[in-house]
Amino acid sequence: MSYLYGGQQQTINPQNVAMAEQELEMVTDTFQRIVDSCYKKCIPTQYLDGELNKGESVCIDRCAAKFFKVNEKVGAALAQKSQ
């Protein structure tokens, strides 16, 4: 979309932009997967009320923490394989 930058003197390095885009997408994708996974693990679908009760709240916190730990383990295992 270079027409956006007609008046600018600086040139954009597409590799920098692509890198940032990639990183942004990775964070969003991971967030979306945590949202889906922890909902399945922590929220019963009867909806007896609209509040998050204590049990659900604690489950969410632990679920997010555990997802990050799994992320780390998997990352380390992949890094080791590719050596």
Binding site: V27, F31, I34, V35, C38, Y39, I43, T45, Y47, L48, D49, G50, E51, L52, E56, S57, I60, D61, A64, A65, F68
Partner: peptide, 24 residues
């Protein structure tokens, strides 16, 4: 059910966004 589900999911989303930000 839909109204409760909406309310709950909004709260769920707030909480998990907060945690995600901290952990990140």
């Amino acid at each position: 059910c839909v109204l409760r589900c909406t309310e709950k999911f909004i709260k769920y989303n707030e909480r998990i966004s907060l945690r995600f930000g901290e952990l990140n």
